[in-house]
Amino acid sequence: MEHWHPNPDFFFQPGGGPILDIGPYYITNLVQLIGPVKRVAALAATPASERTITSKPRFGEKIKVTTPTTIHALLEFENGATVTFNASWDVWKHGHAPIELYGEEGTIFVPDPNFFGGDVMMTNRTDAVKKLPKWEHAFAVPNQQHAQGMMANYRASGLADMALGILEDRPHRCSLELSLHVIDVMTGILRSGETGRFVAMRTTCERPEALSPAQAKAMLARKK
């Protein structure tokens, strides 16, 4: 945020904040995995009313914070699943996995949904937690060098899926219905943070169709 972006003001004004900035990755993934949300509630806080820019060229300049930077939200899904969602720009270090998913028969540890790849860990009942063996999916293959090592980056796959959907006359996965529902969830969380009340969702959506390994492979252009 203020330590890397040259003009970080917008992060700390209404329309910014961690829910609208990073929430889309998490909430979209939850909706594709579990389905639509029924209602939400949240506590919102602004521990620091002012931030100091440490990026160039405005190093040392202060920014006023006018949107919450710490949010604790509860989400109830239409199928009955209950979720705790926590987003903050006020934490130095923590020891949590990005997403932990609890089922009747086991737990899945989901990697950061800001990225396409990463290790999926799982356990059944009382078994030890295991990293699952490699899965052949075209959009998990590392293709870019990052500071953390080689990573899978297939941004624009949603755009390509929409174009192919138009050409093949079928629905696309990163759809209006899905993104509108995610906006409903995020703005509902912020509203609940202001009012202290549960907020019922006004929209709903179908889960986007899964993208199988074969379907992902078929989306790739042949290498020249």
């Binding site: 979209t28 949904p113 990225f115 396409f116 696309h172």
Partner: peptide, 16 residues
């Protein structure tokens, strides 16, 4: 048509 990012949920890890 209207579409929107994020598309990271199409990634191999999340589809798995």
């Amino acid at each position: 048509r209207i579409g929107s990012a994020p598309d990271t949920f199409l990634g191999g890890a999340h589809q798995r």
